[in-house]
Amino acid sequence: MPQLALPTVFYLLVATVLWAGNAVVGRMLVGSVSPITLSAVRWGLAALILLPLGWRIFMPSSPLWQNKKRFLMLGLLGVGSYNVLLYLALQTSTAINVTLIGASMPIWMLFIGAAFYETKPGILQLTGAIVSLVGVTIVLTRGELSSLLSMEMVAGDLFIMLATILWAFYSWMISRPGSSTEKQWPWAEFLMAQVMIGFLWTMLFEGFEVATGFAFIELNPWTISLIIFIAIGPSLISYRFWGLGVNGAGPTVAAFFANLIPLFTALLSGLILGDPPQLFHALAFALIVLGILVSSTKKSGSQASVPPKNP
């Protein structure tokens, strides 16, 4: 039987819905904000919003300084590199390519877990990954699988592939506390450490965009409201909920929920464009959920050994 508690499912669903919104908004902002500038403004604003709750992390007595190497990596993988690569991918790659390649995350999660964290995937997890990937493919091809034959690789596809691999490493890292006391950290301080360090990494990347003359931003009420949304929803809320979800389900099972992002992206885009859901959306949803249920059964048990934490 599935091991997922309802709060865990809720956390992962909310995170994926908000990240779907981030993909939609990111495409809407193409031409108004350059990709790395968008990431820098997003995380700088997120850090300011979180500062009243997480400021203690910067005190000399904070455990951040004893774990600085770990958080330099968490900030780079989960906040800095992933989001820069995602926005770069949206500049050149099609929605089908970006989200289909991103849907390979459960496969990468299983591979990284086996290669670096001594958690061998079970047959049910592998089966769930395949079933879920079929569901994602149905969404992205709108039920016409023959359209896969016309797909062409572009630079953005390589960006999102790298981003997906880095996110898999990030998810495994947050599932394994770096010290015996880390799981007792207040959630705001744990998240603040990642957001602030990720912002600093992003500003480093932003320096290259500025130096090459590609940085730009057009501020108006519309773009400002969209940036505020991605700074609060897909940033602070999603990252907090993803950490809770990984804590409850383990990184491999949580990765299957990420396959809902293309479906939610298609539905949100449809609502904005006035395109109602189709029958293939329901079929895809059923397959993705089936993949989640299959992967989270007790027989897949490699995630049972993931220690709990409180991100």
Rank of each mutant, 00 (worst) to 15 (best):
F208Y: 11
L45G: 01
A255N: 06
V139P: 00
P35K: 14
S132Y: 05
T99L: 11
F257Q: 02
A95G: 04
A40G: 11
Q125C: 05
I112K: 02
I292Y: 05
A20S: 14
S104Q: 06
P276C: 06
M203N: 07
V98Q: 05
V154M: 05
I230Q: 07
S269Q: 10
S150W: 07
V30N: 10
W222M: 11
L12P: 08
M59S: 15
Y82L: 12
W167E: 04
A115Q: 09
S32A: 11
G243M: 14
L90F: 12
L226S: 11
P311F: 12
W201Q: 09
E209L: 06
L76P: 00
P186G: 06
L140Y: 04
L64R: 01
T212A: 15
F208D: 10
P106Q: 12
I165P: 00
G102W: 10
T164H: 01
A114N: 02
I101D: 04
F285M: 14
V17Y: 05
S146A: 14
L18R: 04
Y239W: 14
K69L: 15
K69G: 12
L86H: 02
A47D: 00
L72H: 04
G291E: 05
P186D: 10
N67Q: 15
E118W: 08
R42Q: 05
L204K: 04
M153R: 08
W167M: 11
P221E: 10
W187S: 15
N310E: 04
M173E: 14
I160R: 06
V98D: 02
L64E: 01
L110I: 13
L263K: 04
A129H: 01
G233M: 05
G248A: 03
S238M: 11
T297F: 06
A40R: 07
N83C: 02
M153F: 14
K309Y: 13
G122K: 07
R42N: 07
